[in-house]
Design a protein around this nucleic acid. Sequence first.
DNA 1: ACGGACTTGCACAGTAACGTGCAATTGCAC
DNA 2: GTGCAATTGCACGTTACTGTGCAAGTCCGT
Lengths: 204, 204
Amino acid sequence: MTAMTTGNTSRADANRRRILDVALAELLRDPDASMDQIARAAGVVRRTVYGHFPSREALISTLVDEAVQALADADAAGRAGVTDPAEAVARSVLAVWQTADRYRLLIALAQRTVTVQGIRDRLAPLREAKVRLLQRGLDTGVFHSPLPAPALAYVHEQMLFALMEAVNDGLLAAAQAGRSATVAVLTAAGVPASRAMELVAEVA
Amino acid sequence: MTAMTTGNTSRADANRRRILDVALAELLRDPDASMDQIARAAGVVRRTVYGHFPSREALISTLVDEAVQALADADAAGRAGVTDPAEAVARSVLAVWQTADRYRLLIALAQRTVTVQGIRDRLAPLREAKVRLLQRGLDTGVFHSPLPAPALAYVHEQMLFALMEAVNDGLLAAAQAGRSATVAVLTAAGVPASRAMELVAEVA
DNA sequence: ACGGACTTGCACAGTAACGTGCAATTGCAC
DNA sequence: GTGCAATTGCACGTTACTGTGCAAGTCCGT
């Protein structure tokens, strides 16, 4: 024990990183995974994990922060400079799809260790951006839906989760999943199937 | 304790029923609600709950069975004798929406006490019927989607959950929610928005 | 090969839940 | 009104997990 507070030694850093990575995988399998399960899976003793993170909550919180960051980065990078709402959604979904694992972690934890409200708070900026995008699409007639933009944003989030599950269960070929998911999301927003496919073809 | 095995006394039956109802409400709020929380909420002592259900798992299992049954009944009754796939989906969604609470319980428990596989197993018959319905719609050109029918079935399930959340969060007016949800689901299946609205108008 | 950062192993206290046994009590039904 | 099922109250034993303390070991750079 003693220090580890310096946080500059490569060995400690590597361990910390590995613990986070393994924790992600374990929590994905079982959102209630104990510190001991996580530690063992990381090839480390439980006591060591407490050397890097003061509590279970701190560990998970770090993971959530990283996940949100990865999503935000993917989303922003994916649709930078795109003005057409439909194309923006298409690029956003394709980009976010790459971070599938981390997205799933959020979903998994949303109803467990972390309060739902906690997750929502951290995702708020990301969601608000999406709501504005959807609203713009509805206003300009690119999207058509009886749902208000905020509800549509919920639907989009859940659709992505459903499609990730479908891939896990072998109902959807992983190779084409990203493109299929994008078409599905656009379709749900009221974009005609033909136009959605066109868009995806030219974007991907 | 002693008996309670006769199960014919009205007092015991009423208690058992109330315990189940209250347990549903408590588990909806907190999927990890303890037996003590449930018992207290039902105005009963923990020990009494164990008089009716041998274990926590047995209690929850009963609840899940009832939920699946309610869903299946609503689904079947809703679309009995309807041949057009789009209309069948519309009627099914509108009917299932009525059992929202029980549907939400399944979702809440799906990632907790009960194994995901356990839930899937019990929902299998219901889902297979839906898959066949969707497949028929895809084959006849009523539906359009790059997703195979089984994946589309997943998407529909998750959409309903997302929309229930939206209602809870005040993003969607409860009065119109059922109809909006139905249009959204049909739209996600590739039915043009105009046709979807027509259908819902004549069915509801 | 030496020193300090990092890790291990073990032990401990605290907490929370489950499932059970049994004597005492309550309250319907007849 | 009384009898018997049902409920209560309480006390156990068990299990599992969190968070901490500390001494002994291990590994790496220098």
